[in-house]
């Protein structure tokens, strides 16, 4: 694939001289305001999109339950309840009411348990956050380990190591989970499957979730390191007798790992989606298992809320990274920036 061009330009040496003549307001402020506005728009659109996808459902669960002969409702009662939930309204009216409730922070009521969705999610979100954050730590450590190995190990070891990200990306994450359980729980007895929230079980669940994510980070990191290693300054440092590992730590790592921050932000979606499967395999109670239960019981308000929260998480993390990145990386010049900073090479789109 050809390089995905970022919309920002790397500042040319003489850019400083011609700078600031045309624009009075700070380019960073303009950029930040644009990004925040975009983020808000995306979250609102995500809410509408999910609502529309979910309302495509043939037959709504409320009607299904109410018309169940066992429940023995009269037509009048059914009509009253349907009107209470607003299900007799056209879709766009329902969307508008649901959206305005969402804007006041009300996520609706679960159709199954009649509890507020925010409470249902609040009870279990901690477990998923712990899992996702530990998985991210595992992924970052693993990715940097692999990247370090490819540059500092002797060639016979480093070459096969380069195939690891590709391999990790090819393994279904449920297979990794099953493999870890089989080896570390059943054969070595390092953790109990029953104690699914214990630290050992959480660690292995995080490994299962983190391995595919580490592949994406490692791919970009390795590509950046290779790119930096081809630069003149690296050749100069080597010719002056700098050792490989010193070159790596002192010179290559910093410019290579800065763009990785944006890749890490992009993997948030992967972590949340993958948690669905990992939580099922490891028998954890979390957002993933809540989604599964809601899918089987057609508990739409819960599904809607989870999807929107996931989108919000993704958007906020990426917004923060996009806002902080120009401050971290002096190579980014915002004057040409129209949308977002993505100074990453290939691999990020996968």
């Amino acid at each position: 694939m050809a390089q995905t061009r970022s919309s920002t330009t790397v500042r040319k040496p003489d850019a400083r001289l011609t700078r600031g003549a045309r624009r009075t307001s700070s380019p960073y402020l303009v950029y930040a305001l644009q990004r925040v506005a975009q983020a808000v728009a995306v979250v609102l659109l995500a809410y509408c999109f999910t609502f529309l996808v979910i309302s495509v459902l043939p037959g709504d669960p409320v009607t299904n339950t109410l018309r169940n002969p066992e429940n023995n409702f009269t037509e009048e009662e059914i009509a009253r309840i349907v009107a209470y939930y607003g299900l007799d309204q056209p879709v766009h009216v329902q969307l508008w009411e649901s959206l305005s409730r969402f804007l006041t922070g009300d996520l609706g009521v679960s159709l199954r348990s009649n509890l507020p969705v925010s409470r249902l999610i609040g009870e279990i979100i901690g477990s998923t956050l712990v899992l996702a954050v530990s998985a991210l730590v595992v992924a970052v450590v693993l990715a940097f380990g692999i990247a370090y190995g490819t540059r500092n190990l002797p060639a016979p070891l480093a070459r096969p190591l380069r195939a690891f990200p590709s391999l990790f990306l090819s393994v279904p994450n449920f297979v990794i989970g099953l493999l870890l359980i089989n080896i570390f729980a059943f054969q070595l007895g390092l953790f109990q499957v029953i104690d699914s929230e214990g630290p050992a079980a959480t660690f292995f669940a995080a490994v299962a979730l983190g391995i595919p994510v580490s592949a994406q980070i490692a791919e970009v990191l390795i590509a950046n390191l290779d790119h930096e290693a081809r630069q003149e300054y690296a050749g100069f440092a080597t010719s002056r007798g700098l050792s490989r590992s010193r070159l790596f730590w002192r010179h290559l790592l910093k410019p290579s790992s800065l763009p990785v921050v944006t890749v890490v932000a992009l993997t948030v979606g992967e972590l949340l989606g993958g948690a669905l499967i990992t939580e099922t395999i490891f028998g954890r109670t979390g957002v993933g298992s809540l989604v599964q239960r809601s899918v089987t019981t057609q508990d739409l308000p819960v599904l809607q809320a989870v999807v929107v929260l996931a989108a919000i998480t993704f958007v906020v993390v990426n917004l923060v990274v996009d806002l902080v990145y120009p401050l971290l990386d002096p190579r980014v010049d915002l004057r040409g920036a129209t949308k977002r900073v993505r100074p990453v090479t290939e691999g990020a789109s996968a």
Binding site: A46, V53, V56, L57, G269, G273, L276, V307
Partner: peptide, 17 residues
């Protein structure tokens, strides 16, 4: 918007719809 919704979660929601 499509990018913001985790793709596996999106697939689950669409398939359940």
């Amino acid at each position: 918007v499509l990018l913001a919704i985790p793709s596996f979660l999106l697939a689950v929601v669409v398939v359940s719809a």
